[in-house]
Amino acid sequence: MMGSNGGRWALLGAATVTAVGVGRAVARRRRRHQPDEQDGWYVVRRGVTVDRPIEAVIGFWTDRERLDRALAEWATLEQIDDEHWRCVAPDTSGAGTEWRAELTVTGPGRLSWRVTDGPEQQGTVALVPAPQGRGTEIRAELRYRSGPVRRALGLAGGHEPDLRLRDTLRRVKSLIECGQVIDTRHDPSGRSRAQERVTDKMRERLSTGGRA
């Protein structure tokens, strides 16, 4: 009688210790995966390496046709003067509203942007020569207002600004390096239309936030 009670208590104790341990490990992992926070802003820094010299990368930004293709489906750009641009993009959460942002060239190979109409967001882009003649590092810093729950929902739903930033960097890299962003949606398959819709959803998940 005593023995079996003791066994139960030991089991309960072990289970509690395990649960606490697992909980702490999960919490620690989540903390490590949270972006930095500064003055209430989430700050994420993402970079991509483009196998071209800085001048070629700047050339891309001044080539309207290629730039429009990079932003296709997401945004339009309008130049106001030498240093200022205006960007209009649909709200990524799919609410059907529009964002407006202002872009300012702040130096050679540097620019900053700020959303003027839409959720609070701002950021900078800097071009840095990559070591070993590996081309140019495009380093972007994005600041936005969010919270742990919103970020988790955004990551799950694929509309977290961080994911969008990674996608943009990947598209830009691909366009500069090989002139296109490859796409295999709607290639031939033996799928019915309903199956194709499900597959498209999966394709989107497999491409959103991916890095080159």
Binding site: E177, C178, V181, L206, S207, G210, A212
Partner: peptide, 12 residues
């Protein structure tokens, strides 16, 4: 190649 997999998340 960096640019030929349009669905890089799985392997990443």
């Amino acid at each position: 190649c960096d640019n030929s997999n349009p669905q890089p998340v799985f392997t990443e």
